[in-house]
């Protein structure tokens, strides 16, 4: 039997534009999701430890194949404040999803068919990054959204005290600079698609801060810590600049 109640349903909204379907691996330690986006340039990794749920009960390993497109439509009703509960029996062809809107007390129940998802499991190697920089998540989202209005990709440059996001396109160029207090092993410069950064930054509501782990010519990591877990987005670099 499996039962988990989660109070940050907005997490679903943060990943729905990257992946349409995913297996949710349910274990006694918690729920994990790891999936590549359709264009194979990004990987989403989410870990929610059992302690972040009230309650959490999982007496055997279970993989629930869930359509995030459908789940988003269900969760969208109540917004970021919704409480989401997942329940499954021993034969998980279907699972129950219970959505509770805290503001109105309204409870909605669904029986959802588990999907058979052909999903490749990717091993993510341990990486030592040249720069690991933590900045306010709202500022990061503001910068990404603002620059993306006119431009397509962004060059990240980080020095001892500042991280600079600069971008250029047909209409001209723009840049944003933020102070940080993080350690760097040296200055770093790399280019990343703004469209993806805007997608990653939809996780802003989950955490006050976001951590950018950067190195040249390896996937960049954008990480949001959530209560008892994390949402990590890896993005393949542009090479041969």
């Amino acid at each position: 039997l499996f039962h988990a109640r989660f109070e940050q349903a907005g997490l679903v909204d943060a990943i729905k534009d990257l992946i349409q379907d995913s297996d949710f691996h349910c274990r006694d330690s918690g729920i994990a999701l790891r999936n590549m986006d359709n264009s194979q340039v990004a990987v989403v990794v989410i870990l929610l430890e059992a302690g972040g749920f009230l309650p959490y009960h999982c007496d055997r390993r279970l993989n629930l194949g869930i359509s995030l497109t459908s789940l988003t439509k269900i969760v969208h009703y109540a917004g970021d404040e919704a409480t989401l509960a997942l329940k499954a029996n021993d034969n998980p062809d279907t699972f129950n999803l219970v959505l509770e809107c805290l503001q109105t007390g309204c409870i909605i129940k669904y029986d959802i068919k588990s999907r058979d998802i052909d999903q490749e499991h990717l091993e993510i190697p341990k990486t030592d990054y040249a720069a690991t920089i933590t900045i306010p998540s709202a500022e990061f989202q503001r910068i990404c959204r603002n620059l993306s209005q006119l431009l397509e990709s962004v060059a990240n440059e980080a020095s001892e005290e500042r991280i600079k996001f600069s971008s250029s396109g047909d209409i001209g160029s723009g840049s944003a600079t933020l102070r940080h207090n993080s350690d760097l092993t040296g200055p770093i410069a790399l280019t990343i698609s703004l469209k993806y950064l805007v997608n990653f930054s939809k996780a802003t509501a989950l955490s006050y801060s976001v951590t950018l782990s950067l190195s040249s010519e390896v996937p960049q990591l954008v990480e949001y810590k959530v209560e008892s877990g994390f949402a990590r987005f890896y993005f393949a670099p542009q090479i041969g600049e």
Binding site: M36, Q40, V41, A42, V43, E120, H121, L122, E123, I124, P125, T191, S193, V218, P219, Y234, F235, A236, P237, Q238, I239, G240, E241
Partner: peptide
């Protein structure tokens, strides 16, 4: 301008 790589060039599938 660089070329966008894919994530499978860095992370191995199993």
């Amino acid at each position: 301008e660089g070329t966008q790589s894919t994530i499978t060039q860095f992370f191995e599938g199993s």
